[in-house]
């Protein structure tokens, strides 16, 4: 399992983004964070990131309900243009609608559907699943 250093958070709720970053740091799930408030800015930003680094952040966390371009649209574009083998993408959403969960399954690169609120408990489980066991 690859180590997770760089984490991209796409969410329009700054409080959530703040809290999430703190949690992820505590859990050692990433040490460098990029934040985009909607899908459009995220796509543009990630294209630039990819050109510069010829790679993508180790983990991309995307919310579903966002203004301008929502999470679904972002995932469509991302899947077509930027996705690479082994890329980790999680959906983090307050939606508990079964329809959303089904829809998420259409994107094979989406590895997790994480419900808000994110708790330290949930993060511990994710860490166990995805981060380097040594850390």
């Amino acid at each position: 399992m690859q180590e997770i250093h760089k984490v991209c958070i796409i969410d329009d709720d700054p409080i959530f983004v703040f809290g999430l970053q703190r949690f992820l740091k505590i859990a050692h799930l990433g040490d460098e964070f990029i934040h985009y408030p909607n899908g459009k800015l995220a796509l543009e930003g990630l294209r630039g990131y990819h050109e510069e680094h010829n790679s993508l952040p180790d983990l991309i966390l995307v919310d579903l309900n966002m203004p301008v371009m929502d999470g679904w649209q972002f995932l469509e574009h991302f899947g077509r243009e930027l996705n690479q083998e082994g890329q980790l993408v999680f959906i983090i959403s307050s939606s508990i609608d079964m329809a959303d969960i089904k829809r998420a399954k259409k994107f094979p690169f989406v590895k997790e559907f994480v419900y808000k609120p994110v708790t330290s408990e949930k993060l511990k489980q994710l860490v166990a699943k995805y981060s380097d066991p040594v850390v």
């Binding site: 959530f16 809290g19 949690f23 307050s94 808000k116 609120p117």
Partner: peptide, 13 residues
Amino acid sequence: RSHVGNFSMLLDL
């Protein structure tokens, strides 16, 4: 839910 989620998350933090 979003707000309450934030609340509990912040309390956790």
